[in-house]
Amino acid sequence: MKRLMNIMFLSCLKATELIEKKLAFKLSITEKIQLAVHKTMCEACSNYEDQSILIDKGLHNLGGSAKIDVDMDAFKKSILDKTNHGQN
């Protein structure tokens, strides 16, 4: 019974680890059950999972939003200066 309890009850540290494993890789059947059981009892870890998924989505779309605020003529000139120097 004690062994069963150990298998079924995860710490929050372990649960968040499994949440990230689930998002980045894959969980085994046992891990899936462990995590599901933990989340029914733990609101904080359920919040963590929702928020981690949201952050995932956000990170995927974070690139490319930076505005290009560069003086292109000066930038091109600096490249040319460098490359010509490299030729000598």
């Binding site: 710490s11 929050c12 540290l13 372990k14 609101e43 904080a44 870890c45 919040n47 963590y48 929702d50 928020q51 949201l54 989505k57 956000g58 779309n61």
Partner: peptide, 25 residues
């Protein structure tokens, strides 16, 4: 984030975010 036994440290416990809809992104 966690105590020695792996439970959340209370101040670091994830709270529900009021505005957690994807549109926030």
């Amino acid at each position: 984030f966690f105590t020695e036994t792996g439970e959340w440290n209370d101040p670091k416990k994830p709270r529900a975010w009021e505005d957690d809809d994807s549109h926030i992104l």
